[in-house]
Design a protein around this nucleic acid. Structure first.
Lengths: 194, 194
DNA sequence: ATTGACTATATCAATTCGATATATGACAAT
DNA sequence: ATTGTCATATATCGAATTGATATAGTCAAT
């Protein structure tokens, strides 16, 4: 799925600026299962405008650059749904430098291994906070759509959030139960092979 | 972490061809937490050769293109370890078109939502098989390093494999417990909003 | 017979990332 | 006082990477 399609999806939750769309992928609704950088979002929005799939109104701001608030056209909306229906979703891909590094734990100081695991845990801890739809310090901003008029989370979003939480919790649980074992294994491993 | 570093890491487990390195990321040891395509691996190996971090011997084959079997130099090995020690690992990133699509479940036919969830489950089921170090149909090929001379899985690899399994199992469990609920929610949701 | 899958290397256009530039205000730290 | 950093906001661009394609032969299946 290319960034253009992702932008259309982001605008399904309501009008937004390019900056706000990036936040949806950085902090917001999509952050735990999609990625898009500003360097791809802005050109995508320009292209979508040219193709008539979105429009924008420019909002002047005091002492700040103008905002461009983008809005799906009815054609953009139709195009997005059609894409979802037609395109075969790509394989999921998970990318983790930390896990890659841990694969070579035998070659590293044990303290570093421990620090890497702690870092992994901390990041996943932060992610559960971010995903949690009931989290009170999560603002009801443009970066967190997926709700209907009454403020209820839509079923699809709720399911996806729950799935993300379950995966985070599982990894945290695994670390709690297996970190010390790995450290011990590494120590004996290193003692045997100097 | 760039593809050059990933290639060095792949060669830590023993000599391999570019094709075999891709398999490590496609099917093998690294497949569930790193990605690298052939289009990036071959140029990376060329660059690494120029920099003296790997060497290769060309092996003629009957009725096939020659194999280039790449091998870490001692400098390459040192460089790799140094990189692991120095480089701050990038944020983990998980990318899933299926989950993104499910976010818009309200806009799709319920049958499609169900099919997407089943597909997600099937892929994760396949992944657990692939990760499992005890899986008997997993060959002891160049695509599956991470073992010492006695065939024992190294502690770091075992930990990472276990973590991957735990996350897969958690997602499968979540789906078993919540799929029907989502389908029901969607039906009532759609009934209320025609 | 022919389609598709596997081994093997290589190239390349299109896409995307990540860093940087620009402008301003707020707030914390030294 | 001043420096640093963070947040808002858009935009550009080189570098890295993907994904498709070319080449070429073997093998199994339809």
């Amino acid at each position: 799925m290319d960034v253009r399609t992702l932008c259309l999806g982001a605008l399904m939750g309501g009008d937004a600026t390019g900056y706000e769309i990036r936040k949806m992928f950085e902090d917001g609704t999509f952050s735990h299962f999609q990625i898009a950088s500003l360097g791809s979002i802005y050109p995508a929005l320009t292209k979508l405008t040219q193709d008539g799939l979105v429009t924008f109104v420019e909002q002047e701001q005091e002492n700040r650059p103008d905002k461009k608030i983008y809005c799906l056209t009815s054609e953009g909306r139709r195009k997005f749904i059609r894409t979802l229906l037609q395109v075969r979703p790509a394989e999921d891909r998970y990318r983790s430098d930390i896990l890659f590094t841990l694969t070579f734990a035998e070659e590293l100081p044990v303290e570093m291994t421990e620090a890497l695991i702690d870092e992994f845990a901390a990041r996943h801890e932060a992610m559960t906070q971010m995903i949690d739809p009931h989290n009170p310090d999560k603002p009801h901003s443009a970066a967190n759509p997926g709700r209907d008029e009454d403020g209820n989370l839509k079923p699809g979003c709720q399911f996806v959030a729950g799935l993300g939480q379950a995966m985070c919790e599982a990894s945290l649980k695994f670390i709690r139960e297996n970190k010390q074992g790995l450290i011990d294994d590494l120590k004996t491993f290193k003692a045997n092979k100097p």
